[in-house]
Amino acid sequence: MSLTLADARIVTPEGVHEGWLTIEDGRITHVGHGSAPSPGLSLGGRHVVPGFVDIHNHGGAGGSFPTGEQDKARDAVALHRRHGTTTMMASLVTDTLDGLSRAASSLSELCEEGLFAGIHFEGPYIAKARCGAHNPALLREPSPQELSGLVKAARGHARMVTVAAELPGGLDTIRTAVGEGLLAALGHSDADYDQAIAAIEAGATVATHLYNAMPQLGHRAPGPIAALLEDERVTVELVNDGVHVHPAMLRLAYEVAGPGRTALITDAMAATGLGDGDYVLGPMRVHVTDGVARLVEGGSIAGSTLTMDAAFRRGVRELGMSLPDAVQVASLTPARVLGLAEEIGSIAVGKAADLVVLSAELEVDGVMKNGDWITEP
């Protein structure tokens, strides 16, 4: 089956052009300028961008990935796909080892179905002083042996682990993660500048939601933020929801890391797509007021109710990104983090037809996954 999308403003890494593209058997086969050579589906000048890639997501539509409940996880994936996220990781939070293993095993079946690009263990190897919405009673010292057991439970679909590198066993666990083929991320950490550098040297290449759950940037004590921003090997996650980080600090990080090392994430939880009220994030109770999720006990921010299309729009409107750069931080850079940049993340011949149609106001008008419409424009 062949489909041509015509009369479109196509956003590629090279820029934005008026043109068309053709899709066959779920792949992009042609990308052209000007008028399409044959009749197709006219998009009336709307933008076409690659599907968004979210490497840090805990759920939505009432579903919480840390529970491992497959039906609710499917609902969450469907919600995020309607908002343009065509590739995502399932992020877990701190739980018992048995609880993490059960959730990972269950979600691995959804990975095999293509609903997730992998599983992210955000806990339990994080710092009590920076645990945020994680249960401090369930935190553990990093253990290479335990991590290997969690990786085994995920049946080949573990993709990332967040570690507080300053903890005993932290650096060895980072090295083990890399040896197991996982991405090692530094986050929920009380590390100082030198300890963060040691984590990077051990193999950490991702900053879990930069700024959040780590020491602040200081002129005498630069802490992990400076180390993570200045090292070209590190991709920094940013939660661009207007709550987690002030726009000025987001702009600062983006100016240093650039689109090639910045990945917008949602850190979404079960309330995403729903209203205010009571929810859970793993074993923790969460209350959402005015779209902001906080722990019932203590009031820490507990994930977000953000979707990637909203993060994309804020990137353009609040942070001053060009459309190609906003596409890079929402699609291509996170795809590269996952090792999938040859398949997804940009509009190019040969890549999967994971596409989002956006209005002039950058609202989602259509979403396509592997050449099939999820939402038809």
Rank of each mutant, 00 (worst) to 15 (best):
L5E: 05
T12Q: 08
H17I: 11
T22H: 09
S35V: 15
P50L: 10
A61M: 10
Q70H: 08
A73R: 07
A73K: 05
V77S: 01
V77M: 00
G99F: 15
L100W: 05
A104L: 15
S108T: 03
I119D: 09
H120C: 05
G132W: 00
P136L: 10
R140M: 13
S148E: 14
L150D: 02
R155W: 01
V161F: 14
A164D: 05
L167K: 12
Y193K: 06
Q195T: 14
Q195S: 12
A204G: 02
A204D: 10
T205S: 10
H209P: 06
L217H: 05
H219I: 07
A221R: 13
D231Q: 00
R233M: 06
D241P: 03
D241L: 11
G242A: 03
H244N: 12
A248L: 14
L250F: 06
A257D: 03
G260M: 02
G260F: 00
G260Y: 01
T266W: 12
T266C: 12
T272F: 04
L274K: 09
V286H: 04
H287L: 08
A293K: 06
G298Q: 04
G298K: 03
S300E: 13
P324T: 08
Q328D: 01
V329I: 13
L338Y: 12
G339N: 09
E343W: 09
I344R: 10
A353Q: 04
V356Q: 00
E363V: 14
D365H: 08
